[in-house]
């Protein structure tokens, strides 16, 4: 179980959180103007890196807020979290 440092509440066990998937996935500003391929890329394609991963977590059983996290997906070590 990961010990995740919530930027608001401090270190808490993983089961207080929900994983929010890859960070910085930007929804197209005007979905009517993008192609099906671009829309699919936004909806479904993910970097899924082996190594450093920028992801989001949500502290659902704490402050309820989303935050960003940098984690190594090989060692599961959390490098840093930020608001």
């Amino acid at each position: 179980m990961l010990l995740i440092p919530c930027p608001w509440c401090g270190p808490r066990p993983e089961n207080e959180f929900r994983h929010g998937g890859e960070a910085h996935v930007v929804r197209p500003v005007d979905p009517r103007c993008v192609s099906d391929a671009e829309w699919a890329d936004f909806l479904y394609n993910r970097t899924n890196p082996k190594g450093i991963h920028a992801e989001r977590w949500r502290h659902i059983h704490g402050c309820g807020r989303f935050f960003n996290c940098i984690r190594d997906t090989v060692t599961d070590r959390i490098v840093t979290t930020s608001k």
Binding site: M1, R18, H19, R71, T73, T75
Partner: peptide, 13 residues
């Protein structure tokens, strides 16, 4: 596990 990983382990919980 709830998060993506290549660790070939998994949380004991």
């Amino acid at each position: 596990d709830v998060y993506t990983s290549y660790s070939q382990a998994g949380g004991p919980h």
